[in-house]
Design a protein around this nucleic acid. Structure first.
Length: 425
RNA sequence: GGAGAGGUGGCCGAGUGGUCGAAGGCGCACGCCUGGAAAGCGUGUAUACCCCUAAAGGGUAUCGCGGGUUCGAAUCCCGCUCUCUCCGCCA
């Protein structure tokens, strides 16, 4: 969430940011409500501190009086402390109440979009940041979508997934399973080469963790929830990996921190059905390698560019046609200041599929998780960033479709060492 | 799942009602010493918030979390939570 001092200092910018996100005029008042509540909070805090100080001083006096045998005088002071205690209690309750309302409001305010974020209502208004400059793979007239190819070569089985679990839980087998594992290893190796430390995190997280990265309360309905133990299945490795540094104060020289992690990801995707979610286009469980960075505020946008280059490099090596979108205000995630999406062209469906989302959250997450670094005598919130590098299910869909031919499905050269075969036939 | 023990500062570890944000040690930083280093000596070393502010300074809270007793709680009481040990179960 945003910091109140920031909202005070940059009031106009925060409001402009909400407008970029298509907030209605009538809802913009929340900014001033927050500032007013914070004024109340400060006044209450000052009064409470004073009452506590008075009471502490009196208590010390009482101690002294008892020691010197002047019990009667002590009794008088006790009455005074009693009154002060009443006041402390009252002020404390008011302060807690104000603080709670303030936090509640703060949780409703999304991150301020970066200056470069275009206005727009939704995904159709996203800006094409880098288009695919070359031709798309030309497939013959009998090209098949990936779910048909999967059936033909026995690569994954959605019906079996339904039998075992339910819709949207694919079961990979044979060369399909092998391809999956090859991609995971390839992505992790590439991340490691780029200097990211590999993390293999828990797949279930507690409430504090889910709140820190912004899944709670914003996206509660998107996560699978284990009620009995009050735990959530992770929707992305971002959640447990970023939380490694929750409540941590880093030395400035520790920055940047670069981490990568492979995990399955679980998403309820409530309400999305229809022909466009066929096959692997949208599933409840998929594999993903994520990269996460903690950065000095002065360097975070440079880091974002490095991450774009990394993800682009992966797609180049996989020989997949892709484009990069800069998300508009209407499509930008709640916690993000700037997000670039990568989409690969899946040639048989003739559709763009989102395979990566690379974002700078600036201090929005670090404020929630109290992730700081030492800046001289002070502590300062670090910037957090993350990106998919890469999400598997849709990569597999595109690979299968784009590389098909009458002979079979060609495996990109870079993967052949991982798969152990160069053709699925 | 059953039984027991315990959560104190970056780490170890004292502290059973007052002057304790907390002894001592380690670590770290700076200074002295040295040709340089080690050792030694000295000084310093939590976080958040509030007031004031040019800087400085002052105040409040925090000894797992929440509540209670008391003029006063790290210390006493209650609830919760986490960790460890033993037993059981188990990949």
């Amino acid at each position: 969430m945003l910091e109140v001092p920031f909202m005070r200092a940059q009031r106009e910018r925060v409001i402009a940011g909400l407008k970029t996100r298509n907030w209605k005029e009538g809802d913009l008042g929340v900014v001033d409500q927050i500032i007013a509540l914070d004024d109340d909070r400060k006044a209450l805090k000052t009064a409470l501190d004073q009452a506590n100080a008075d009471s502490n001083n009196l208590s010390k006096e009482i101690g002294g009086l008892y020691k010197s045998g002047r019990g009667a005088e002590a009794e008088e002071l006790k009455a005074q402390v009693g009154e002060l205690k009443e006041e402390v209690k009252r002020l404390q309750e008011q302060l807690n109440d104000t603080q709670d309302r303030l936090n509640e409001l703060l949780l409703t305010v999304p991150n301020v979009p970066h200056d470069s974020v275009p206005a727009g209502a939704g995904e159709n208004d996203n800006e094409v940041y880098r288009d695919w400059p070359a031709a798309f793979p030309s497939l013959g007239p009998d090209a098949l979508p990936h779910w048909e190819l999967a059936r033909k070569y026995d690569l994954f089985d959605l019906e079996l997934g339904v039998k075992i679990t339910g819709a949207g839980f694919p079961l990979y087998r044979g060369k399909g399973a092998r391809l999956q594992r090859a991609l995971i290893n390839f992505f992790l190796d590439e991340a490691q080469r780029a200097g990211y430390e590999e993390i293999l995190p828990p797949l279930l997280v507690n409430e504090d963790t889910a709140r820190a990265t912004g899944q709670l309360p914003d996206k509660e309905g998107q996560m699978y929830y284990v009620e009995r133990d009050n735990l959530y299945l992770i929707p992305t490795a971002e959640v447990p990996v970023t939380n490694v540094y929750r409540d941590v104060i880093l030395e400035e020289s520790d920055l940047p921190v670069k981490m990568t992690g492979y995990t399955p990801c679980f998403r309820r995707e409530a309400g999305s059905y229809g022909s466009h979610v066929r096959g692997l286009n949208r599933v409840h469980q998929f594999d993903k390698v994520e990269i996460v960075r903690l950065e000095h505020p002065d360097r975070s946008y440079e880091a974002l560019q490095e991450m774009l280059a990394h993800v682009g490099g992966l797609l180049d090596k996989l020989e997949l046609p892709y484009r990069i979108l800069r998300l508009c205000g209407g499509d930008l995630g709640f916690t993000s200041a700037l997000t670039f999406d990568f989409e690969v062209f899946s040639a048989a469906q003739e559709r763009w599929l989102e395979v990566s989302s690379v974002s700078n959250f600036e201090t929005f997450q670090s404020n929630r998780m109290r992730l700081r670094f030492r800046d001289g005598k002070n502590t300062r919130l670090a910037h957090t960033l993350n990106g998919s590098a890469l999400a598997l299910a849709r990569i597999v869909a595109a690979l299968l479709e784009n590389n098909q031919s009458p002979e079979g499905i060609r495996i990109p050269k870079v993967l052949q060492g991982y798969t152990g075969f160069d053709l699925i036939s």
